[in-house]
Write a protein that binds this DNA or RNA. Structure first.
Lengths: 240, 240
DNA sequence: CGCTGCTTTGAAGCCCTTCAAACCAGGTGG
DNA sequence: CCACCTGGTTTGAAGGGCTTCAAAGCAGCG
């Protein structure tokens, strides 16, 4: 059930059988949410974190004029809100982009897990810091990259992150979201996202149609995005 | 020496004398850096974290064409790179904006601190998550707010964060950085930052001159920025 | 007293937005 | 079985916010 979560962890750290069992014990209730469901509202007191098993979720903030900024996309294997373990309530909302399956991890169990397995505690701390790395890279995109670069960069990031959990090949991946969703990630209008996607398609780099990303030229796409996956901290990070 | 760090912590948590002593013991060497000094380069292996005592530092990323995006400003009392405790090397650079005084906290001591004082461990975990909150708020600014709103928002954020550590009053604070630095925070050109600052000045909201921010209308400024400080998680977070 | 780095201002241009409408596919009901 | 509806995609035309390029102004300093 939590295979993808373990794949994500093991892309950076080795996880022993004992640790794996401890992680499993920290999980409780499974739930399913429909698409476009706000799972967590900013400000509400949380007593558990949400591990995404299947589907896509996002963190987002709304502005008073109805605009919305998505600050991160979550793929299966991610905790959508592990940071709520320390924050207790969130500064942002969390919603599903697609129908999702999740499993809850109560904060008292996470605390027990961290106390009994300090190394896992540090790995989960790392995991929240990895979210911050993604936030920083998005800041760079939003602040300095052109619409085309930004779009290409997002598609590269998802290719890598979905690839880690076995949901992407070199050719592409399922991405059953709308162009409006992409626009909310990129700080653009849906109209302009549409034009950018057209350009990416016509230059033969990548195609995003019918909820699927098909990459025709991965190297060209990375070049267009100036994509450097270092910020995703792949590869084993310590022995043992 | 670490008064401001303690002020920052105590703005959210109570810290006992024992915990305070333990924190002090985790610190070693003090260092001074000149302005515009790159203290940490992306990728280099780190064995300690850097606590900023005095001055201003930033996290930033460079792009191949020479553009730069600052992803966070650090004020006295902040760790510039507590996340290096889990990341071991950074995905970004850290530099001084002004002459700075820092103190180092070796990772092995932080680990000891967290093991012997698990509550402090969680508070430091929280602290890195607070950086992520700031990153998210900046994503919103960069993605959705106009140049004027963005600028006003940054000035509000710094007013609050410097206020926590006793470096700002309701009237303003010292901010000895250039308009070009501000531009690198906001994803704008220095020229446009200059025009926006002129507008903020002429509408009587705030003045940024000679390395000092003078706030003439704090409520108006907050309104212009749609500033909501919730994301800074002020106020006591638990009993005890 | 001229150099240097920062700020300020002007003019022109472009990237992206805005507004509007057509197109298209899938689902529903008559 | 097709007309209709709905949500998403696509395209066009006009406009605006910010950039780019250029140069002048200004303060601190050797």
């Amino acid at each position: 059930m939590i295979d993808r979560h373990l794949m994500k962890l093991r892309a950076r750290y080795s996880i022993s059988q004992i640790e794996e069992a401890a992680i499993r014990e920290s999980l409780t209730e499974v739930a399913r949410y429909p698409a476009d469901h706000t799972a967590i509202r900013a400000g509400e007191v949380l007593t558990f974190s949400t591990l995404l098993l299947d589907g896509l979720m996002t963190r987002y903030k709304d502005l008073s004029d109805g605009q919305r900024q998505i600050t991160e996309i979550h793929v299966p294997g991610d905790f959508a809100d592990l940071h709520s373990f320390t924050l207790k309530h969130l500064d942002h909302n969390v919603m599903t982009l697609t129908p999702c399956k999740i499993v809850k991890s109560p904060h008292d169990r996470i605390q027990k897990l961290c106390e009994e397995h300090p190394r896992l505690g540090r790995i989960y701390w790392f995991s929240t810091n990895l979210d911050a790395c993604i936030h920083r890279e998005w800041e760079v995109s939003l602040g300095r990259r052109s619409a085309l670069e930004r779009t290409a960069h997002l598609l590269c990031e998802l290719q890598v992150r979905l690839g880690i959990v076995g949901l992407a090949t070199g050719n592409g991946y399922a991405l059953p979201i709308t162009q409006a969703d992409v626009a909310e990630c990129l700080g653009l209008t849906p109209v302009h996202v549409n034009r950018v996607l057209k350009e990416l398609r016509e230059t033969g780099l990548v195609e995003f149609r019918n909820g699927r990303v098909t990459i025709h030229d991965i190297e060209g796409l990375k070049r267009a995005a100036e994509f450097d996956p270092t910020y995703l901290y792949l590869g084993q990070r310590e022995r043992g």
